[in-house]
């Protein structure tokens, strides 16, 4: 699943923006939060981050990836559930589709209690840079 490369690229381009903004600083450590719904292969993502970092002069950055469990709350009846409660019902093709565009989960999963497709993704979607630790350059 080379979609991880696209996200790794997104992370690194964001970091390049940060280095431009703080040109007298170096990035030491970045914590990336990935929603479980993205269905990311962490090993592939970490590998992609390392490889791309090398090509962009960011090889000294330490990357930490945290996965947030996906959780849903029904807007119709208030029931809450987790992706892990329903994942078994999804076939391989559907999982792949959700991996590409996580929000289409609304097409494939309904509230386990009332069947409504109108629910909130409380957490566990998207990608974000949770923190970026900068250090003043020694030179």
């Amino acid at each position: 699943m080379v979609h991880e490369w696209a996200l790794a690229e997104a992370v690194l381009y964001s970091l390049l923006d940060v280095t431009k903004k703080y040109s007298d600083h170096k990035i030491k450590e970045v914590v990336i939060e990935v929603g479980e719904l993205q269905g990311i292969d962490l090993e592939v993502l970490k590998f992609a981050l390392k490889e791309l970092a090398k090509s962009l002069g960011l090889e000294d950055v330490l990357f930490r990836v945290e996965v947030t469990e996906a959780e849903f709350r029904c807007r119709s009846c208030g029931f809450t559930w987790k992706l892990s409660d329903v994942r078994k019902k999804l076939d391989e093709a559907t999982r792949e589709a959700i991996h590409f565009v996580p929000d289409i989960v609304h097409t494939f999963i309904q509230c386990p209690r009332c069947g409504s497709p109108d629910y909130e993704i409380v957490r566990g979607r998207g990608v974000c840079l949770k923190s970026i630790l900068l250090e003043k350059s020694s030179t």
Binding site: A6, L7, E9, A10, V11, Y13, S14, D17, V18, Y22, H25, I32, G126, V127, C128, L129, K130, S131, I132, L133, L134, E135, K136
Partner: peptide, 15 residues
Amino acid sequence: DTPREVKYLDPRVAI
């Protein structure tokens, strides 16, 4: 000067 800056930035927007 080690600001822990840009919290909760969506990197996808930058790409």
